[in-house]
Computed example of a mutant assay.
Amino acid sequence: MDAQYTIVIADDHPLFRNALFQSVHMAFSGANLLEADSLDSLLTLLDKEDDVDLLLLDLKMPGANGMSGLIQLRSQYPDLPIVVISASEEASVIRQVRSHGAFGFIPKSSDMRALISSLNQVLDGEPVFPEGLGEDNEELSELTDKIAALTPQQYKVLGMLSDGLLNKQIAYELNVSEATIKAHMTAIFRKLGVKNRTQAVILLQQMDINP
């Protein structure tokens, strides 16, 4: 294929990321292929690259917190086509992926022919999902909207909150004052419609998937 695509592969497993890189390189020899191994490195990369045609995203990466990583990316980069490539192939997971704005889902168990066929379909502007998934969950869609309303910094604070860090520890990690973190917390609770840290963490866990 002659088209000059820019494709980002985001996966924290070096062996799988390398195998995917080689497969995509063989199929799209002229493509500009970029890699990321965490949500932070991915966001840094996307900030620098103006014209990414496709993001291949693993749901389980450092900083991604399952589905919420996908939601954060959809919020910050609404025009970027994101295809999730995951080992979690349950219909419920794929429905969540679709309802949270992904352009497609490719199982990690796919052989190279199926993978390349799916990528061609996506690059031609056609979503790719397994058949027979049924309807998306309205409750999940509402949750998606709430998470998407957070700023990148608020999302980062929420992720650290879910990891069990205290305000003082979060302030240290982000190099800001505790008062700033408290202000972020107030805004997060308001946007999520919760009253405390525990409820916020439970809400975030509802978006997660099994490892």
Rank of each mutant, 00 (worst) to 15 (best):
D2I: 05
D2N: 10
A3R: 15
A3P: 15
V8R: 03
I9Y: 01
I9C: 02
A10S: 15
A10L: 01
P14L: 10
R17G: 12
L20E: 01
Q22M: 15
S23M: 08
M26W: 14
M26E: 15
A27K: 06
F28A: 02
G30D: 03
A31D: 03
A31H: 03
N32Y: 05
L33H: 06
S38G: 09
L39W: 04
D40F: 07
D40S: 14
T44A: 13
T44N: 13
T44V: 12
L45G: 01
L46C: 12
D51Y: 06
D53Q: 07
D53K: 01
L54Y: 04
L55M: 09
L57D: 03
D58W: 03
L59W: 00
K60L: 14
K60T: 10
K60G: 06
M61L: 14
P62W: 02
P62E: 09
G63S: 08
G63P: 07
L70I: 01
I71Q: 01
R74T: 09
S75V: 12
Q76E: 14
P78W: 00
D79E: 15
D79W: 10
D79H: 14
L80G: 04
L80N: 00
P81H: 04
P81S: 13
V83A: 02
A87D: 10
A87W: 01
E89I: 11
E90S: 13
A91I: 06
S92V: 00
S92W: 00
V93T: 05
I94M: 08
R95T: 06
R98N: 10
G101Q: 03
G101F: 02
A102I: 01
F103M: 07
F103S: 01
F105Y: 13
I106Y: 01
P107N: 10
D111L: 13
D111Q: 14
R113Y: 07
L115G: 11
I116H: 02
I116V: 14
L119F: 04
L119W: 03
N120D: 14
Q121M: 12
Q121K: 13
Q121N: 12
V122F: 11
E126I: 10
E126H: 10
E126V: 10
V128F: 13
F129N: 08
F129T: 07
L133I: 12
E135T: 15
N137W: 02
L140K: 03
S141F: 11
E142S: 07
T144F: 02
A148Q: 06
L150G: 05
Q153E: 15
Q154N: 08
Y155H: 14
K156D: 03
K156C: 12
V157D: 06
L161N: 05
S162I: 04
G164M: 09
L166H: 05
K168I: 10
K168G: 02
Q169V: 09
Q169H: 09
V176A: 01
V176L: 10
V176G: 03
V176P: 04
S177D: 12
E178H: 06
E178I: 09
A179M: 11
K182H: 06
H184R: 11
M185H: 04
A187R: 04
I188H: 02
I188W: 11
K191S: 05
K191W: 06
G193N: 08
V194S: 12
R197M: 07
Q199L: 13
A200N: 12
L203M: 15
Q205C: 11
Q206T: 09
M207W: 07
I209G: 00
N210D: 12
